[in-house]
Design a protein around this nucleic acid. Structure first.
Lengths: 147, 147
DNA sequence: ATAATAAAAGATAAAACACTCTTTTAATAT
DNA sequence: ATATTAAAAGAGTGTTTTATCTTTTATTAT
């Protein structure tokens, strides 16, 4: 559903929101190591997110990435939009170019239910929401051992 | 979500179920033209479906593809399984390798809801179900004009 | 000012997916 | 039997996604 670039993005942003601040930034190396992502590829992804002002970066010693407190209210859908685009949420389950209420594919209504549900989920959920779950120990973004 | 191969497969099977029988088969050319799919690629896809006995084929004059009456009860999930595999329906929304009830990602419960919903939809819906909708004029698999 | 650090940028490589072309094989109508 | 038809099979191309490598630029500590 979401591309690898997109899920890497989401997990990285969560990690940054959780571990970094304007005072203490986190670097590509640390993120890649902790989330077990390919480091150079992650570099490209974070570069893209920085360009779109979704995260902030500082070069040089003690440089790295962070996210502003307010920016944690950013909705997941915004990240999806920047990385993958929103095409999926407007697409037909059977790949029909023209599929609409007036000219629906035979799966239209049923598929729309879940596609719209996912759209609403990503639209209503913020990075902060996910960070809180991790904070409370109710969820994880790393592959094993504590978080 | 589903690959192009997969949606091409589903639409073709519906088309075959709707238009062909053991007596009157439909050829690649006709399917490709009606559904506006790349003909040689479609050939490969139908070849794969035939190999898996999802549809049947006959070579030579008046040859082509058809599907047995009973086979129309085939569930969509079986086609997805053969073409794309079922990985998506068991995968994590944030791409975590290990994501489970006991070690969930922060999106787990919400995402699971829709992922499972889609799985159930594809598991409960048969080709025949979709053909009926088209038959009644309530749905379409072609890009425009009547069906 | 200078050296060290870390991200940005650019160029390249590998893999997966989408698609095409050519040759072979099987079926059927004559 | 033979010619014709249409799918099967195999090899190959193009594009996108994922991933890597190298060089440059900006920042900071000394």
């Amino acid at each position: 559903m979401l591309s690898k670039s997109c899920v890497y993005s989401l997990r990285s942003i969560i990690f940054i929101a959780y571990h970094a601040s304007k005072e203490v930034k986190v670097g590509i190396k640390e993120i890649a190591k902790e989330l077990e992502l390919p480091e150079p590829y992650l570099g490209k992804i974070l570069q893209q997110l920085t360009k779109h002002k979704i995260i902030l970066s500082v070069k040089g010693p003690h440089g790295g990435f962070y996210i502003e407190e307010e920016a944690e209210e950013l909705k997941l859908i915004r990240v999806v939009e920047v990385v993958d685009g929103l095409d999926f949420f407007y697409s037909c389950g059977l790949g029909l170019k023209q599929c609409s209420e007036t000219h629906p594919c035979p799966l239209h209504d049923d598929f729309k239910l879940y596609r719209d549900g996912l759209f609403t989920l990503f639209s209503n959920t913020s990075i902060a929401d996910l960070v809180h779950k991790i904070d409370k120990g109710n969820a994880f973004i790393r592959n094993l051992t504590k978080d």
